[in-house]
């Protein structure tokens, strides 16, 4: 599903050029659950941004679903992103001005789903995430765990092929964290490909494979479970 080859990303200031991703190559198959680990500043989040089509690589190739996307402009990236990729962030990134229902509904609006169908699909996913009773609340009225469940609901409401999770349990206590990881595992079991950036060895164990990075490069790769097509 994803194949990156010799991927590069630099950050430049006036005087210094920092290499965030350095000739990185790997592949992720459809339905896989992959964790990316490494110390702070190793390029995990940059990688996730490029994979999520939020950022452009400076070199190398990125093939998504058989299409080379490395040179896509913003409009093309946005189009591909909204139909195929869901995001879960450490800090939830819900829009404070929108209710739970409206936050989850948002990706459907941008993909042009009709209002009646939107309502049905949002209700369905909120039920699945057991947050239906909170649908009229605003993010600041929810606990961290609940907010992340809403964020997951928003990430999956469009049935994306890929979910990118950036430290999804980083702001949660262990019990809420486990709940979120269970949710992600369920989604993966249902066929969604997941790439998760994490510092937590515990969370990483939920995945099939762990890619460890240092200074923008892959240092090791551990296969934890046999991934079945």
């Amino acid at each position: 599903m994803i194949k990156i080859t010799d991927l590069e990303k630099f950050y430049r200031t006036d005087e210094v050029q920092t290499i965030a991703i350095n000739k990185l190559s790997f592949e992720v198959k459809e339905g896989e659950f992959v964790s990316v680990m490494g110390p702070s500043g190793c390029g995990k989040s940059t990688l996730l941004n490029i994979l999520g089509l939020l950022d452009d690589p400076d070199g190398g190739s990125y093939i998504f679903n058989g299409i080379e996307v490395a040179g896509f402009n913003e409009r093309k990236r946005a189009n591909l992103r909204k139909h195929n990729i869901g995001f879960v962030f450490q800090s939830f990134n819900l829009i404070d001005e929108l209710s739970v229902f409206e936050n989850v509904e948002l990706p459907l609006i941008y993909t042009g789903v009709k209002p009646a169908e939107r309502k049905e699909r949002v209700h369905e996913v909120l039920e699945k995430m057991q947050i239906m009773h909170r649908r009229k609340h605003f993010p600041q009225q929810l606990s961290g765990g609940q907010q992340q469940r809403v964020a997951v609901a928003r990430a999956v409401v469009n049935n994306p092929k890929l979910i990118l999770a950036d430290e999804p349990t980083g702001n949660l206590d262990s019990s809420n964290g486990n709940e979120v990881m269970d949710l992600l595992t369920e989604l993966n079991a249902a066929g969604t490909t997941i790439i998760m950036v994490t510092h937590s060895e515990h969370d990483a164990k939920y995945s099939h494979r762990i890619i460890r990075m240092l200074d923008g490069q892959k240092v090791t790769e551990n296969i934890l479970a046999e991934y079945q097509h």
Binding site: K82, F87, N93, E97, L106, Y110, R154
Partner: peptide, 16 residues
């Protein structure tokens, strides 16, 4: 900014 970032991430175009 946060709202805009999230909307863009979720697929909103500039035009939207």
């Amino acid at each position: 900014a946060k709202e805009i970032g999230i909307r863009k991430t979720l697929g909103s175009s500039k035009k939207q």
